[in-house]
Design a protein around this nucleic acid. Sequence first.
DNA 1: GGTGCAATGTTAACGGCGTTAACTTAATGC
DNA 2: GCATTAAGTTAACGCCGTTAACATTGCACC
Lengths: 207, 207
Amino acid sequence: MPKPAYHHGDLPQQIHQRALATLREQGEAAITLRTLASQLGVSATALYRHVTDRQSLLAELAIHGFRMLRERLLAVPTGNDRHALIGIGRVYVRFARDEPNLYRLMFSGHLFEKGSHPRLDAAGLGAFGVLENTVARAQQNGYLKPAPLAVYTAAAWSLVHGLSQLIIDGHLDDPDEQLATALSAILIDGTHTRPDTGRPHPTGETP
Amino acid sequence: MPKPAYHHGDLPQQIHQRALATLREQGEAAITLRTLASQLGVSATALYRHVTDRQSLLAELAIHGFRMLRERLLAVPTGNDRHALIGIGRVYVRFARDEPNLYRLMFSGHLFEKGSHPRLDAAGLGAFGVLENTVARAQQNGYLKPAPLAVYTAAAWSLVHGLSQLIIDGHLDDPDEQLATALSAILIDGTHTRPDTGRPHPTGETP
DNA sequence: GGTGCAATGTTAACGGCGTTAACTTAATGC
DNA sequence: GCATTAAGTTAACGCCGTTAACATTGCACC
């Protein structure tokens, strides 16, 4: 077995892991450097060797969250446009429901002065890009009406983001993801060009 | 002129006003009872005669916000269903953009354990009710397809709430409310039954 | 293989916060 | 006029993030 590196072990990773656990269990406000340090059996100021700030630590967690979200979105099958779009919506909302505190942190804009954590911004774009690609592909396939891509992606993102927030804050209930599915479908049915529901990989034909 | 009541004057109102101003200018985190008290020329603990908690004070501000939002939404003309729906969307998003910090507070679910501030929940429902009524009316008028009202309201709320959040957090830009309009229209065009754009007060006819 | 250096960790301390307790002052009700 | 009670005060507790000054450990290099 590898003997523990340096003094403590891999403090950096342990900080991250413990902070993430606390975030999941008790929310962002419960993350304090002092208790975090004591849980790791280390003095409070030791953390500052590996973390510049409480903010930076939170930003790191948010980055982790965006990467998780991105991977989940990437796992949605893309063969059929409609299924892909609805799948993205469902998986997005499911992620928020599975990780409410993490999701809240990721989108707590007041904490992260936009631009002060470039890697965070990049991670956010990374996740958003998957959604954007899905919409773009559906449009290129002719499944969505020709309209500015930015408008469709904004609509899709707003819908799933809003629904996620409302669900995790207890304003809406969606035990079986019926809402997520229905809302995605409503949006799509207002924007697509064909009434079909399952044709994979359309090759240019238009109604 | 009325001489100042009691010791200080109307501390309760002044607390509320000053806190609201700080919220608007610097965000929720900047609201501290100590600086608030010192700004009002009063000791920190004096506030506790009029406010049970920092949380309660914040809840009060949020309530105020929901009432403001409600009034703005009520001012949207209702004569034409489509215009009413789009108007609701625009006004909603405009409110969030006008009062980003207040809006964030209103929907910072992690601060207000749902149920712990009944008046806040009521105020939230009050604002939501306006949106719900608008959707319900459009549906009764036959402008929206018959579908569960809860689904349509959830869709509408999710869309405007998500868009608001994304805008005030800097993820989306919408300088001229074009996005708010376009997104509302997209959602409506997927849910309405008639292609008309301006008939006021339909009286039961269906296509 | 000793040694200097940089990485890592520690204690002490500062200023700020929300909040409680105990006490003082002022207005009101009878 | 006087008791009651509302309104405000000071002192203090415990927590927090963060900085400064100091101690220790492992590694690179001669």
